[in-house]
Amino acid sequence: MAMAFATGGAGLGIPLPDDHTGPGSLTTLEDALGTLLEGNEKIPLSAFAAALLNLLATQAAPASLVGPFLTPLPRLSYARKAKAFELLERTDSDLVALLDVHFPEPLTGSVSGLLKFVGGALLTLALFAALGEYAVYDPATKKLTARPVGWRLTGYEGRVDGLPDFKGYYQGREEAAGDA
């Protein structure tokens, strides 16, 4: 409810795209988000995070309300996207103050920590997805189909099967005997 109040009270009037308008009178992002958050339904964290980032994108650059992409965040330059994430992680931001006041006890005052975590987690997960092996991993063969981007950027040569000194038994031993 606090998020619905914060975004609904922001009065930004972010219009929903023509082909994504909701039922009835839902024509703005605030209306749609408020309706979604006021219900008793479970909502995916991704919907909340996307709405939050798009709201912050409009604060970082109000001109992002219009443009070639569907939502405000992709319309920003990298510098402005960094500014949006900075707004998310700052404990003294207007968004944090607005949300903190409207959360019920015992959550009052804890939003700043939650938002810092969300901001850091979003960046970490995005980097993990972009730089990991998932995009080139074939589950059927359990092999990589190409060299992952992260490997190229870091100069990683791939898996090492072991150093020659440690292959087989150490110093020619064939079994482990204990004196215990």
Rank of each mutant, 00 (worst) to 15 (best):
T27C: 03
T58Q: 15
G22R: 05
N54E: 08
P17S: 00
S46W: 11
A49Q: 12
D19F: 03
A49F: 05
K42H: 07
H20F: 03
G39S: 15
L36G: 02
I43W: 00
A51R: 04
Q59E: 08
E30N: 01
H20N: 00
G22F: 05
L37M: 09
G34I: 04
G39N: 08
D19S: 04
L33K: 00
L29E: 10
S25N: 12
A50W: 02
L56E: 12
P23V: 12
N54R: 09
G39M: 03
T21W: 01
G24T: 01
E41S: 13
S46H: 13
G24R: 04
P23E: 15
L45V: 10
L45A: 15
T21S: 09
E30R: 01
L55S: 14
L33W: 13
G24N: 03
K42D: 10
L36C: 05
E38Q: 05
P23D: 15
P17Y: 00
I43S: 06
T35N: 03
A32Q: 12
F48W: 09
F48K: 12
D31R: 06
F48A: 06
L16I: 02
K42P: 06
A47H: 09
I43Y: 00
E38D: 10
L29H: 12
P17W: 00
L55Q: 15
